[in-house]
Design a protein around this nucleic acid. Structure first.
Lengths: 233, 233
DNA sequence: AAATATTTGTCCGTATGTATC
DNA sequence: TGATACATACGGACAAATATT
């Protein structure tokens, strides 16, 4: 753990330093951090500042502090953040949400070719099952969204791209946070689009698959997203 | 803002209380919280405990504290989510790093058309200046990386896509954190690639621009990333 | 423009409760 | 049981940044 430079606020730098320390030293869940006093000395900050950083980590579930024992690293998850972050759904100002859907769209269309060739038949069966769940939960927005999410997860997980998976998870989590007040009309209309995707996969027809993906992202909440066009076509 | 019960750790209860206060009173982005002293009195906790709660919120991007002014509620942003998701997933290991660069490549190639038409001449001048800085800092990896980063930031910021900006920032942050020790040789070779991009922009030639972008991402650390192919070409 | 007040930033000291040996 | 190590929590003090007069 190296000392701190001066630029940002101390507790923010300290947060980053401790986070870096965990990664650099390969600390796994259960491993103990140095004590508060040690870290204060190493980083050259007061105990208050250090605690503001550590308590933030504890609140977010990155570490767990225990008197008499120390502070242990925990399995990292963004769940707490997603459950506690404040979503301000200012009327008409959901631009960031559309931007996020736009990014998801770009990523899915960018990686769909690799996904196509990485898919096994069992994955396609999972997707088929998700479509069935969509039919069943036509009146349950939450269940429908879960099926939708599982559908796309099943499509891209076989790629084995962990960073892509994590980003998608984050986007879907935010989606759920915002989805609370959305209506169900456009949900049902997306079922045939998913069906077309699965059918193309079952037929192992990439052209049809790509076209179905494009159609899937060309409606509803994705309309305001930017179009996906080839640069040298 | 009402007083606190005793059960969980104090700063966690305090966090919930403040969050609840924001919701109950319908505070919107820009609105100020009560001062630290006021909240300490109302909640019956010490200033340290209160700050541990507030600083947690600030680190998550829920509020922003400013000396002499107060602590204001902030609009939702993906900054914190992206930063931490990438940081903990990439974590200095090779495969995730390449996956991350692959994602950056996909995003830049996906959005370059919109960027092209959103750019003003002043933006292109900025990029030209970044290329000049690259020449000057051929022996200074850190300065070079900053110029590189500024170049790509100048290219995509005019889009006004805040989520894309957040994601790009997060990627560059990981890049700066973990890549400083292994990249001197291929830095210089990337200068002409950036030059080609700027020249195409100055000539307002989209084809040349797109080609230069493709070339830019077809080497070095991007090689292991997946190729960018059109789905129906 | 300058002085003053307000508010957060940072540090220190001390006492207490809890886990470990 | 006792001793030690550690986090929890409180209060006070001054510095730095901003707003106000």
């Amino acid at each position: 753990m190296r000392a701190i430079k001066k630029e940002d606020k101390l507790y923010i730098q300290t947060f980053r330093e401790i986070r870096s320390y965990i990664i650099r030293n390969g600390l796994k869940p259960g491993d103990l951090l140095p004590t508060e006093m040690e870290m204060c000395q190493t980083l050259g900050v007061s105990r208050n500042v250090l605690r503001e950083a550590i308590k933030s980590m504890e609140l977010m579930g990155m570490v767990q502090a225990c008197p008499g024992r120390g502070t242990a690293v925990r399995e990292f998850s963004m769940d707490f953040v997603f459950q506690n972050v404040l979503f301000f759904n200012v009327a008409g100002e959901d631009k960031p949400v559309h931007e996020m859907f736009g990014i998801r769209r770009m990523l899915e269309l960018s990686y769909m070719r690799q996904a196509f060739y990485a898919l096994e038949s069992t994955d396609v069966e999972k997707m088929r099952d998700c479509v069935r769940r969509m039919h069943e939960s036509a009146r349950d927005d939450l269940a429908f969204t879960r099926a939708d999410r599982d559908f796309h997860t099943a499509l891209f997980r076989p790629l084995g791209n962990s960073v892509l998976d994590s980003l998608m998870d984050a986007i879907w989590a935010v989606d759920e946070g915002f989805e609370l007040e959305k209506k169900s009309p456009h949900l049902a209309s997306s079922i045939p689009k998913h069906e077309a995707i699965v059918e193309a996969l079952e037929a192992y027809d990439y052209r049809a698959f790509a076209r179905a993906m494009e159609v899937h992202f060309s409606s509803g909440k994705y309309l305001k997203a930017d179009s996906f066009e080839e640069y040298d076509s």
